Amino acid sequence: MMGEQKKYEMVQEGEYYRIRALIDIPEYGVKVGDYGGVIEDESNLTQDEKGWISKESKAEKQATVHDAFVTGKSLVSDASRLISGTIHDSTIKGTLVQGSVKIFNSTIENSTFCLENEMDEGTIHDSYVLGLYLYAQFNIHHSEISVGQMDGCCEHFHVNDSFITLKSMNILKKCLIRGSKLDLDYFRVSQKVSLFFFEMETDGSLYVIKDDLNQDAETFVFGRGRNPIRIDCQHLMISSTTIKGNPYLCGNMNLTSCEITGMPSIRLYGKLEHSQVSDLAVINYVNEDYRILKKIKLSGDDVYE
């Protein structure tokens, strides 16, 4: 709390008001007399907390900025509540943001970010998101995510019924992707990973690798019924993983110590080692110059071409 001293005054500017600092806010480099952004009403920016809205940004309607910093060309609207965090060049509508959250170049609607520390959990729901930074536990549902890079130092990373376009994703701990489509250049997941009936078609790389330091880790890639697993990528490396449910695997692959079952179709440019393949499997080697089939157990009515 800052006591009874008001943080800013409002200067009429058309139908809105431009804020002018009455105190220093060193957290955001604000000095007494500095002009900030535009608000529709005093309720859009609290007087007794440290939040600030920079010159090119606006807060309107029922939106409230508390200890957050809104900068760049940002718009905070509808019933958004920015408890803390940084919003830069983004449009936020009907969203709760709390914790050390950073949102850049984004359009986010009806979402919730609650990341007080790395064990907290944030959620994006029914949203179109561009340029997202995330840390800690995170959930994405029914969303379209398009980012240059999403690095997941996440205890939990859950994606459900979403479309994700990105340059790279590196999930270090637990990962669950269900009913989603990935379009990316690089995707690496390790330790405990579950991928359920998803699609990935890209010129990039997919790595599902069991961490040598975590021998109890398990990874699963599951398809089901009309929702088979489909992975078509330039480089595919999967180790110590169970893959089942009509999987289609195509690319320059390195499949090691895997169990592949449920009518799999494997179109291979590469090697398959120390794995068990069963249940009406079809393995087709495309590249005659490079192929390794080593210590493989085939069973049932499998076909090798």
Rank of each mutant, 00 (worst) to 15 (best):
M1Q: 10
M2K: 12
V11M: 07
E13K: 05
G14E: 09
E15P: 04
Y16N: 06
R18E: 10
R18K: 15
L22H: 09
I25L: 15
P26I: 06
P26F: 06
Y28R: 07
G29F: 10
V30N: 05
K31W: 03
V32C: 08
D34W: 00
G36M: 05
G37T: 01
V38T: 11
I39N: 06
D41R: 12
E42G: 06
S43M: 07
N44F: 04
N44E: 04
W52Y: 08
W52R: 06
I53K: 03
S57W: 09
K58L: 14
K61H: 09
T64N: 02
D67A: 04
V70H: 00
T71C: 09
K73L: 04
S77E: 10
A79E: 08
S80H: 09
S80I: 10
R81T: 11
R81N: 13
L82H: 06
L82N: 03
T86H: 07
I87Q: 01
H88Y: 11
I92D: 01
T95S: 14
Q98V: 04
G99T: 13
S100C: 07
V101E: 07
K102Y: 11
N105W: 02
I108L: 15
N110Y: 13
F113G: 03
F113I: 12
F113N: 02
C114H: 14
C114I: 13
N117Q: 11
E118L: 11
I124D: 08
S127Q: 04
S127I: 03
S127Y: 04
G131V: 08
L132K: 01
L132H: 02
Y133T: 10
N139E: 14
N139C: 14
I140V: 15
H141E: 13
H142Q: 14
I145Y: 06
I145A: 05
F157P: 04
N160I: 13
I164A: 05
N170V: 15
I171A: 14
I171C: 15
L172I: 13
C175S: 15
L176K: 10
G179I: 04
S180L: 11
K181F: 07
D183N: 12
L184Y: 01
Q191G: 02
V193S: 13
V193K: 02
V193W: 02
S194V: 12
F196R: 08
F196N: 12
F197R: 11
F198P: 00
M200Q: 03
M200T: 03
V208P: 09
I209S: 12
I209D: 14
L213Y: 14
Q215G: 09
E218K: 15
T219F: 05
T219C: 12
V221K: 06
G223H: 03
N227P: 03
I229T: 13
R230H: 02
I231Q: 01
H235A: 07
I243V: 14
I243G: 01
P247W: 03
P247R: 03
C250Y: 11
N252Q: 14
N254C: 09
T256W: 07
S257Y: 13
E259I: 15
I260L: 03
I260P: 00
T261G: 04
G262S: 09
G262T: 10
R267L: 11
Y269L: 08
Y269K: 14
L272C: 13
A281E: 00
A281Y: 00
V282M: 11
N284V: 12
E288C: 13
E288Y: 11
L293V: 12
K294P: 00
K297Q: 12
S299V: 08
G300D: 14
D302Q: 07
Y304R: 12
